[in-house]
C-alpha cells in the first residue's frame, strides 16, 4: 500500500489544463487544410492527381471534403498542406466541405432543450462497426487521467439503456448493420449520434467497398461529425465541448 502511495506522489497530477490553456499539437500533425495549397490543388486538379477517396472534387467550383479526407502524409491530389489546427468537428455534413476562402465552420451547440438534459451529464454507448481499433483507442484515451473526460460530465457506459447517445466508429460493415440499429433503438429518446473518424463519416479507406455502408448517416441520423483517420483526441474533445457550449 505504501508503495502505491509513493508511486501516486511520484507520478504526479497529469490532467491537462485544456480547454483553459491551449494544446501543444505535434509539429507534423495534419489538421485543417491551408487555404492557399487547397486553391492550388483545385486549380491543378486532373485525372492524374485525382484523390483515391474523391475527397477533393470540382463540386461547387472545387472543394475538399474533410469527411472523406484521410489527411495523407503525401496528398495524392496536388499535395495539400495541412495546418496543425485540430478543430475539425462539425454538426452538419455539408460543413465538412471546405472551399478556398470559405468561412470556417465549427460544431454548433445542441438546442437549449437538449443542453438542459445533457449539459451536465452526457453518456455514450460506443459501437465499433468495422473500426480498425485506432478510432476506438483514441476514444478510450479520453477517459484516461490525462484527458479525464469525466470532468466535463461525459462518460462512456456499458448499456445503451443508460446512454444519451450513440458513438459510432467504422464504416458500418454489412455484418454490423443490424447490431448498430438495435443498439440505436435501445437508447431512450432524446438521443444524439456521433460519427467519429473518416470511416464513420463516409467509409474512410473503405469508401464504396461492397462490404461496407458509406458511413453512419446512410443508416441513422448523425448529430456530430468528427473527421480524421483517426481523429486526434483533441479533435474529439473540441467537438464535444462545442456541442455542450463549453467552448465557442
Amino acid at each position: 500500500m505504501i508503495r502505491a502511495i509513493v508511486s501516486r506522489i511520484m507520478q504526479g497530477h497529469r490532467t491537462m489544463p485544456y480547454p483553459a490553456s491551449p494544446l501543444q499539437m505535434p509539429e507534423r500533425f495534419r489538421g485543417y487544410p491551408a487555404a492557399a495549397s487547397l486553391a492550388r490543388a483545385i486549380e491543378h486538379l486532373s485525372d492524374s492527381t485525382r484523390c483515391p477517396y474523391d475527397a477533393i472534387t470540382m463540386t461547387d467550383g472545387g472543394c475538399l471534403d474533410l469527411g472523406k479526407c484521410l489527411f495523407c502524409a503525401e496528398c495524392p491530389a496536388g499535395n495539400i498542406e495541412f495546418t496543425s489546427d485540430h478543430r475539425l468537428a462539425v454538426t452538419q455534413r455539408d460543413h465538412l466541405l471546405v472551399k478556398p476562402g470559405s468561412d470556417r465552420k465549427h460544431a454548433q451547440p445542441l438546442s437549449s432543450d437538449l443542453r438542459r438534459i445533457f449539459g451536465r451529464s452526457l453518456k455514450f454507448r460506443e459501437v465499433s462497426a468495422g473500426g480498425c481499433n485506432a478510432c476506438e483507442a483514441d476514444t478510450n484515451v479520453l477517459t484516461t487521467i490525462g484527458w479525464d473526460l469525466g470532468r466535463f460530465g461525459i462518460q462512456f457506459v456499458a448499456s445503451p439503456r443508460h446512454a444519451d447517445g450513440l458513438w459510432v466508429t467504422g464504416p458500418v460493415t454489412e455484418n454490423m448493420v443490424k447490431a448498430l440499429i438495435t443498439t440505436y433503438e435501445a437508447i431512450p429518446t432524446p438521443k444524439i449520434v456521433v460519427a467519429s473518424g473518416a470511416c464513420a463519416i463516409n467509409g474512410g479507406p473503405y469508401i464504396d467497398s461492397p462490404r461496407v455502408s458509406n458511413g453512419v448517416d446512410s443508416i441513422i441520423p448523425v448529430d456530430l461529425y468528427i473527421p480524421g483517420c483517426p481523429p486526434h483526441p483533441a479533435t474529439i474533445l473540441d467537438g464535444l465541448l462545442r456541442i455542450l457550449d463549453k467552448i465557442r
Binding site: 507534423r28 502524409a73 483517426p230
Partner: peptide
C-alpha cells in the same frame, strides 16, 4: 499516450499513419 505521442513526433499521427 506518451508512446503514441512519440510516434506522432515521427509522422504527425499517433498511430503511425503516413
Amino acid at each position: 499516450g506518451e508512446f503514441l505521442n512519440m510516434t506522432a513526433v515521427l509522422c504527425g499521427s499517433r498511430f503511425g499513419r503516413g
